[in-house]
Write a protein that binds this DNA or RNA. Structure first.
Length: 449
DNA sequence: CGTCCTTTGAAGATG
DNA sequence: CATCTTCAAAGGACG
């Protein structure tokens, strides 16, 4: 189950209530912004705040909905390269979460400031088609510098991080005219070969966007802790909200593939080090044993998440949804308009884990467990039935050619079948959900079993 | 200075 | 075909 996005059914419903046309996406954006979490501080992402006034959703969005994803998509088949850039759908319309920070003039696209953001695909900006879009919202100078450091594709990409060339993108792809390519040369080139990073997934995009906010709100700085919070928030996001990111991510992937057709995730394999294995193993063991013998490493004392000042801990709702991802979404669905679910995380005890103990807890529970597992399990259980959906959906991303199966459309949230969602009364959460919400994380985690 | 931690999702690798 | 691994961001903590 992967392709999340708004299912038709769901989408339809949603749309009904909100916007009939694909524009809903765009609408959403703004909505999100204004909705709960948006903080004045708002960071990086311009999700649409300025560039795209909520009120003015370009109607040119995607005319139709991708059968598979249920996401509105442009007229062209996804696989069509041309469309992407155009697809203002989300990227264009939404300033693209990634796009938030377009490098300022002069600034090398790649040089990413530590806290910095990078525009994932500056290319967009450059794209002719985009240009029109961009121009309207982005000043010309925002456009990435002309060829310098261009990717073979001719497009500079933030994801390109060349260790070697990093600082000096002097010779981009190098010797265009160079005809002599000795093995050495080739090698060199390879070395120089910029490191093309993986496109960010929905959650990563979300994190990028929200991190600053969370940090500001919580005063926490540790990424691990922040990420935990974000993970919770992610789960508490409404369907539409998540959908937005899924869509974005999808576009990112598409764009990425267009820009770097030959790139493969495997290219980056082994570049980061592999220590996860142990970790995973440990986790598995733990789960197995349940005893939670934490990994030996307990790190820092960690920062207990203090609700202290900000909304971080908004007390209001208190449900700890955490893992109930299923629930949440459903809730969201139920009341599309209401941003209801959100923020459960904040309410949670969240002792952010870095603490050994906390970790233990986490480890024990699904969330902490392997995300995959959890997702898988949840998906299986929830979505159920839609057996086929899973695989198909997953591939869906590629989806390019997959037959439109509206019915099986995978929902991002493993949880509730669309119908159920639909049926669920808006405004009221399922009892189970309620329970979950009230439950502490730890409890929640292993309930189902 | 390099790695870990932590999150979810995508995709490659493996069985 | 199902499961497992790795990587993506990020920044403090740790060795």
């Amino acid at each position: 189950m992967k392709w999340p996005l708004l299912d038709v059914p769901a989408g339809a419903t949603l749309k009904d209530s909100r916007s009939p046309s694909p524009a809903h996406l765009s609408n959403k954006v703004p909505v999100v912004q204004h909705s709960h979490h948006m903080h004045p501080l708002t960071p990086l992402i311009t999700y649409s705040s300025e560039p795209f006034p909520p009120g003015s959703p370009p109607g040119h969005l995607s005319p139709d909905i991708d059968p598979k994803t249920g996401i509105p998509r442009p007229p062209h088949p996804p696989e069509l390269p041309p469309y992407y850039p155009l697809s203002p759908g989300a990227v264009g319309q939404l300033p693209h979460p990634l796009g938030w920070l377009v490098p300022q003039q002069g600034q090398p696209v790649y040089s990413i400031p530590p806290g910095g953001f990078r525009h994932p695909y500056p290319a967009l900006a450059m794209n002719a088609s985009m240009s029109s879009l961009m121009s309207s919202r982005f000043s010309p100078h925002m456009v990435p510098p002309p060829t310098h450091g261009l990717h073979p594709s001719g497009i500079p990409h933030p994801t390109i991080v060349s260790p070697i060339v990093k600082q000096e993108p002097t010779q981009p792809s190098a010797s265009p005219g160079g005809s002599s390519k000795s093995a050495v040369a080739v090698k060199k080139e390879e070395e120089k070969k910029p490191h093309i990073k993986k496109p960010l997934n929905a959650f990563m995009l979300y994190m990028k966007e929200m991190r600053a906010k969370v940090v500001a709100e919580c005063t926490l700085k540790e990424s691990a802790a922040i990420n935990q919070i974000l993970g919770r928030r992610w789960h508490s996001l409404s369907r539409e909200e998540q959908a937005k990111y899924y869509e974005l991510a999808r576009k990112e992937r598409q764009l990425h593939s267009q820009l770097y057709p030959t790139w493969s995730a495997r290219d980056n394999y082994g570049k980061k080090k592999k220590r996860k294995r142990e970790k995973l193993a440990q986790q598995q063991q733990q789960s197995h044993d349940t005893d939670g013998a934490l990994p030996a490493k307990s790190k820092k004392p960690c920062v207990p998440y203090l609700p202290a000042e900000k909304p971080c801990a908004s007390p209001a709702s208190s449900h700890g949804s955490m893992l109930d991802s299923p629930a949440t979404p459903s809730a969201a669905l139920a009341s599309p308009a209401a941003p209801a679910p959100t923020h459960s995380e904040q309410a949670q005890p969240l002792s952010l884990t870095t603490k050994p103990e906390a970790r233990a807890q986490l480890a024990g529970h699904p969330t902490g467990l392997s995300s995959k597992a959890s997702s898988a399990s949840s998906s299986s259980s929830s979505t159920s039935s839609s057996t086929s959906s899973s695989s198909s959906s997953s591939s869906s991303s590629s989806s390019l050619s997959s037959p439109p199966s509206l019915l099986s459309r995978p929902i991002p949230f493993p949880s509730v079948p669309p119908t159920a969602l639909l049926s669920s009364p808006p405004g009221s959460l399922p009892a189970a959900l309620a329970v979950l919400q009230t439950q502490p994380l730890s409890l929640v985690t292993k309930p189902a079993d």
